[in-house]
């Protein structure tokens, strides 16, 4: 899966889980920028990302994630 494919899949996941059909992801995007991205939604996002990419995200991985860019690089690292 190349970078664009990762971003496309992640966009679908975010749009679905945050109930926001027009959301556009950028690496700098953080929870504070998106209405509805609260701690409850965050846990659901992690589960949805795990399922969409068939990866496992550990507790320590989550701690380091500050924005969408961190999400993308984590996924790419796990897929590599």
């Amino acid at each position: 899966m190349n970078h664009d494919e990762v971003v496309a899949t992640l966009t679908t996941v975010f749009r679905q889980r945050l109930n926001s059909p027009d959301l556009v992801l950028s690496p700098e995007l953080t929870a504070a920028d998106v209405p509805g991205w609260d701690s409850l939604a965050h846990i659901n996002l992690i589960l949805a990302v795990e399922k969409a990419f068939s990866i496992r995200i550990a507790t320590r991985d989550v701690r380091g994630m500050k924005n969408v860019g961190d999400f993308i690089s984590l996924i790419e690292k796990k897929l590599a």
């Binding site: 701690s39 846990i43 659901n44 589960l47 550990a58 507790t59 989550v62």
Partner: peptide, 14 residues
């Protein structure tokens, strides 16, 4: 155990 550590969820979300 990971989800418990992260968010105190009772069991695997599934």
């Amino acid at each position: 155990a990971g989800r418990w550590a992260m968010s105190k969820t009772l069991c695997a979300l599934d």
